[in-house]
């Protein structure tokens, strides 16, 4: 741990309108589930904290920095059936599948990852509205909890976010000294949610724990990064190979990333019937851009890495005016070769 990066502590600001006692979290889960909703929260699975659908407060993890995965998989599942078909001698039967969009509460997300929703929404409604995504998001209430701890991979402040950011969140919580939360409704959806489950909450003041705010990564200038990426002269710059030659080309970073959203459509089944699926895909795979002719415009791994970086810091901001990177640091944590995106940001700040 680098003490310099971990020293930032923020002053305590109270803006809550309700409180949630530690012992009442279970009541909230029960209240949501009683109405047929699903309650997604960070919970232990195979020795690590991940977002899961939980049934009780005992399952909900505490003391975590952030979940290993992003909660995007509850809005945009890794694999889902979009159509079913059957074939016989003279005809094809084709049936679209209705999206399975239960009322969902995502509890305990971090302010950084919630900021990814704007970009996802824009992408999935760009020209065509993908109701597999929008219907799920419409039915999801995102409850973020301001961070009281972090690690050296955290860099939200470097991309203009902080533990106090509320972008994408419907309800914002702060941990209190007695292990409960102060509660603030942000959006109409969030306020309605709080009213619906009003009986679970209490009122009154509570002492909030100080927030953890990571220090910004030194020598990163987002404006400069964006400027440099606009000029495509960097495409053949050997610096890409220098920085990313160690990348092994797995998709771990893209799959845990809250803003990555590429997918592939594939058929599965027998000669007589089957289903069409929408599956996560990754720009880090060599087959991602492989043409039928055998030509691959991104033949080398550094080119694929360049694409990922361009997507985060050029395509997303330029096309959708939204954040392509929220600084959650998941890609750094899962990378088997510890390729650190902030080091590339530094290079392109020069």
């Amino acid at each position: 741990m680098n003490p310099a990066r971990l020293s930032g502590r923020m002053k305590t600001v109270s803006m809550a309108d309700r409180t949630l006692k530690k012992e009442d979290l279970g009541k909230l889960i029960d209240s949501v589930r009683a109405k047929g909703g699903r309650f997604v929260a960070p919970a232990l699975l195979a020795r690590q904290v991940v977002f899961r659908s939980v049934k009780s407060a005992e399952e909900v993890a505490t003391g975590y920095i952030l979940a290993r995965n992003s909660f995007k998989e509850f809005l945009f599942p890794q694999t889902e059936v979009i159509a079913e078909f059957s074939m016989n001698k003279d005809s094809v039967g084709l049936k679209g599948v209705e999206v399975d969009a239960p009322e969902t509460v995502v509890f305990g997300a971090r302010p950084c990852e919630a900021a990814s929703l704007k970009g996802l929404r824009t992408l999935f409604t760009w020209d065509f509205v993908d109701e597999f995504y929008t219907k799920r998001e419409d039915k999801t209430v995102v409850i973020t909890v301001g961070c009281t701890s972090g690690d050296e991979a955290c860099f939200c402040t470097t991309v203009d976010l902080s533990p106090e950011s509320t972008e994408g969140a419907d309800v914002y919580l702060r941990e209190t000294e007695d292990n409960g939360y102060t509660v603030k409704g942000l959006t109409e959806k969030g306020k309605k949610f709080l009213d619906t489950h009003d009986a679970v909450f209490t009122s009154g003041a509570a002492k909030e724990r100080p927030l953890f705010k990571p220090e910004t990564v030194p020598a990163v200038d987002l404006k400069r990064v964006s400027e440099r990426l606009k000029d495509r002269a960097h495409y053949d710059d050997p610096v890409w190979a220098k920085l990313t030659m160690k990348c092994i080309g797995c998709g771990a970073c893209t799959f845990v990333c809250p803003t990555c959203r590429c997918f592939d459509i594939t058929d599965e089944g027998t000669a007589f019937e089957g289903e069409r699926r929408k599956n996560w895909d990754s720009c880090q795979y060599d087959a991602f851009t492989l043409h039928a002719s055998g030509h691959n415009p991104r033949e080398h791994q550094p080119q694929r890495w360049r694409n990922r970086f361009m997507c985060k810091f050029n395509f997303y901001p330029e096309k959708f005016s939204s954040k392509g990177c929220v600084g959650c640091g998941r890609c750094i944590r899962v990378c088997p070769v510890r390729l650190d995106i902030t080091e590339v940001m530094q290079e392109f700040s020069k």
Binding site: I82, A83, V92, L94, G96, V97, E98, V99, F128, V129, D130, E131, F132, K135, I265, R276, K278
Partner: peptide
């Protein structure tokens, strides 16, 4: 539901 991935049959 409007399923943008559903093809037309031809």
């Amino acid at each position: 539901m409007d399923n943008i991935y559903l093809p037309y049959l031809a």
